[in-house]
Amino acid sequence: MEESIQISIQGDLSELKKVRERLEEFLHQCSMPEEKVFQLVLVVDEVVTNTIKYGYEKKGGVVKVKASCHEKMVEIIVEDEAPPFNPLEYPPVDMEAHLQKGNTHGLGIHVLRTYADECAYQRLSGGNQLIIRKRVSS
């Protein structure tokens, strides 16, 4: 069993599927229940999507996803070389009120807050690093 993997993409939305498939395969090896795998894959998909769309403004750029399996926790580190962006600075939204107004921005960050058990952001020299942790079992 692999204890960690690294997936690197060039920052095109067409690569999202590859990230999801590789990550899903790895998370199954970590004995994570199917529902949690789906949630964590969605979180990473949203984070990488935000980097490609807003960080790199769809002009491309390296995005690295590192995943590691621990006894009780899976840790995902997403790194890019985009301008500073800390999703955790955005205040949580009341999704029901948000949707009643027809708003759809900030959905990806809501997914991150909802499905990740722990999150931490660091600005590295020349890039962003987001650490996401999720418990393997409930």
Binding site: L16, R20, L42, D45, E46, T49, L99, G102, T104, H105, L107, G108, H110, V111
Partner: peptide, 16 residues
Amino acid sequence: SYIATAALGVLMANHN
């Protein structure tokens, strides 16, 4: 088999 928020946003925009 899968939905990300970009697609949820599309549903909401068309609903509106």
